[in-house]
């Protein structure tokens, strides 16, 4: 039996409200499946779902968030064979290379899961202000982050851009690789069965060029990762994002080597710093 690939919004798997779909092929052009072609309204629904989930997700303890994200890695590994097949088909990799990619994606989830309760310790600090005040700076999540996932790396690249959003406590609307969306939809199935509350991550498939402008200009989106768009389109998107002063991650000149140590860039991009003052005295 073949699977119907749908969107993942608010914890459910709807078809596109537009009723559209498009044919997804493997690296040699053979038909794999029809994927939902997400629309402006789907993107808006996804933002509403992400905003609704933000209070709960950002309010969980870092320990709890870490356990939930670690669980994602456990469930992901349980579906390893399925991902290896989908990544091999999408990216034209030999089974062995696809397996290494999936393993790296699992490790990446684990890496970010371990960050939830360490971010504050590594990025926050007490400040020795010159006066009788207690002064503390702590990172807090930015809010709703739109992510244009990388176009080439359908799973490892995707995980590398969404996991840091979630680890920091923000919620996410991600537009999957247009040509290679199937591993993303399957990742949605993993997330739906991993204690990640509905709406914390929402996955759209379709044409990035069609959906991205609506996310970039959306007034209830706080940040946008332009990773999966090309440099030419990125300029317009960055301009649109300025409308409500979104935090913007610009796309790389060419797609990153996702197997490299990711560093903290994608975590800190979606964090605010809050400083709290309180007087000290009897």
């Amino acid at each position: 039996m073949r699977k119907t690939y749908k969107l993942y919004i608010g914890g459910a798997f709807p078809r596109s409200e537009s009723g559209r779909s498009y044919a997804v092929t493997d690296s040699r052009g053979r038909f794999l499946a029809n994927a939902a072609q997400g629309s402006r309204k789907d993107a808006r629904d996804a933002v509403v779902a992400a905003r609704k989930a933000f209070g709960g997700w950002s309010g969980t303890t870092a320990y709890n968030r870490g356990q939930v994200l670690y669980r994602v890695a456990e469930v992901l590994e349980g579906r390893r064979d399925q991902f290896v097949a989908e990544v091999a088909a999408a990216e034209g990799l030999a089974p062995r290379a696809a397996g290494a990619t999936v393993d790296a994606a699992i490790d990446r989830w684990v890496w970010y899961a371990g960050w939830t309760d360490k971010l504050t310790q590594v990025l926050g600090n007490a400040n020795p202000v010159a006066g009788p005040y207690f002064n503390l700076s702590v990172p807090e999540p930015t809010g709703v982050v739109a992510v244009l996932a990388p176009q080439a790396s359908s799973l490892l690249g995707l995980v590398s851009v969404v996991a840091p959003v979630l680890a920091g406590g923000s919620t996410c609307v991600v537009v999957a690789s247009s040509a290679r969306p199937l591993p993303a939809v399957t990742l949605g199935e993993v997330l739906a069965t991993s204690d990640v509350p509905g709406g914390v991550i929402n996955i759209l498939t379709g044409a990035v060029a069609e959906i991205a402008p609506w996310l970039a200009s959306h007034a209830d989106v706080n940040g946008i990762d332009l990773c999966g768009t090309d440099l030419a389109d990125a300029v317009d998107l960055e301009r649109a994002a300025a409308g409500n002063v979104k935090r913007v991650l610009r796309p790389p000149a060419s797609e990153s080597d996702w197997s490299a140590d990711p560093g903290l860039t994608r975590l800190t991009a979606w964090l605010e710093t809050k400083t709290v003052w309180h007087p000290m005295g009897v």
Binding site: Y63, G66, Q67, W111, A113, G114, T116, D117, K118
Partner: peptide
Amino acid sequence: AAHFFYHAGWADKLAYAG
């Protein structure tokens, strides 16, 4: 259990321990 869980995450992040 929480101690093991927290410290597990440090194993591959030692470069950030200061």
